[in-house]
């Protein structure tokens, strides 16, 4: 089965892409990810760690006691102090691109204020095949209007796009006032791909301690519904490629996203939950599903269940053919 696909103009051996996650923090992990069979890897975001922890506080604790006393100029091994900064990130990226034979996509997180364009350029220089720009809509900001927020994101995208020659994808949150219009405008601005959708880390409340806590949960297959609906609706109307992300637990979700029109499908949770070998299982099942329906490549199914202007299934004739072939020989759940 030919699982080859292109994403943002990059040739990829299969449509399963590792999304930004703790699994790309070390060279060893990146090598293992590549060996697992994924088509490409999106690195963790350059600034994502900084978003989730109070860096100032941490730094002040580490720094305030160092270089003060002759016998103990520091208290922690340097290597343990998390190599998450730009220098280490770029070094890791550089090392990864020279070692693994699949495309590595760098990731920039767009809600932090920083020296955008220079980092984008450095990511390109480090050998990334593309950049994923993660645009985050902060919840609870009372001061910014929807228009201002959108404009800020367009500006960030434009400044990055202008600086680099490699393709740039934007990863969007579901909370834009008019998501479809926002996607359209990114498309017009030249986005090479739209990544749908960003997941929020929602706070929770601990009833024992009456404290607000932050939990990072792995995504579940129920979460496929919103991105699936969006991709199904928009596929036909934008030039940019689409990456689907969120809710992939098995090959079933991958196939659904492809049918909706995604060029590639991203996952982390499935690998975190089941280990690296699970990638091979998903790909094998995808292969079987396609074979059983007489397909020889992904293009034959991609976007077949997206909507056209009349809100009908695009390529409906092909869909009916598929339906006939769908004997569901393996008894897969279809929900």
């Amino acid at each position: 089965m030919d699982l080859k696909t292109t994403y943002m103009g990059i040739d990829i051996k299969n449509p399963l892409v590792a999304s930004p996650s703790p699994l790309s923090h070390t060279l060893k992990q990146i090598q293992e990810l590549a060996a697992s069979g994924v088509g490409a890897i999106v690195m963790h975001s350059l600034f994502e760690e900084q978003l989730t922890e109070d860096e100032d506080y941490r730094a002040s604790i580490i720094e305030s006691h160092s270089e003060s006393f002759a016998e103990s100029l520091s208290y922690f091994p340097e290597s343990a102090l998390a190599a998450t900064g730009p220098t280490e990130y770029l070094e890791l990226l550089k090392a990864a691109t020279s070692i693994v034979d699949i495309p590595i996509i760098g990731s920039l997180n767009g809600s932090a204020i920083g020296n955008w364009t220079s980092y984008a350029k450095k990511i390109q220089t480090a050998g990334a095949s593309g950049i994923e720009l993660n645009l985050y809509c902060p919840i609870g900001n009372l001061e910014i209007t929807s228009q201002e927020l959108e404009q800020l994101h367009f500006d960030i995208f434009t400044s990055v796009k202008r600086e680099v020659d490699i393709p740039v994808a934007v990863k969007l949150s579901p909370t834009y006032t008019s998501l479809a219009n926002t996607v359209k405008r990114f498309d017009l601005l030249g986005a090479d791909a739209i990544v749908i959708l960003n997941r929020y880390i929602y706070p929770d409340i601990d009833l024992d301690t009456l404290e607000v806590i932050s939990n990072v949960n792995l995504s579940t297959k129920n979460e496929i519904k919103l991105p699936l609906a969006i991709i199904t609706s928009l596929r036909h109307y934008i030039k940019a490629d689409i990456a689907a992300t969120g809710g992939v637990e098995t090959a079933v979700e991958v196939i659904k996203y492809l049918l909706a029109g995604a060029n590639v499908v991203m996952t982390t949770s499935a690998i975190l939950k089941n280990g690296y070998t699970y990638v091979g299982k998903i790909l094998a099942e995808l292969d079987i599903w396609l074979t059983s329906r007489g397909c020889s490549n992904l293009d034959e199914i991609r976007g077949t269940l997206s909507h056209d202007q009349n809100n009908n299934y695009y390529r409906s004739s092909y869909v009916s053919a598929l339906r006939k072939a769908n004997q569901n020989p393996y008894g897969w759940s279809n929900n």
Partner: peptide
């Protein structure tokens, strides 16, 4: 600064 403080976080670098 970038070399020393990047480990400590972007906010620290920027400050």
């Amino acid at each position: 600064i970038i070399k020393t403080y990047s480990k400590r976080g972007q906010k620290v670098v920027d400050a």
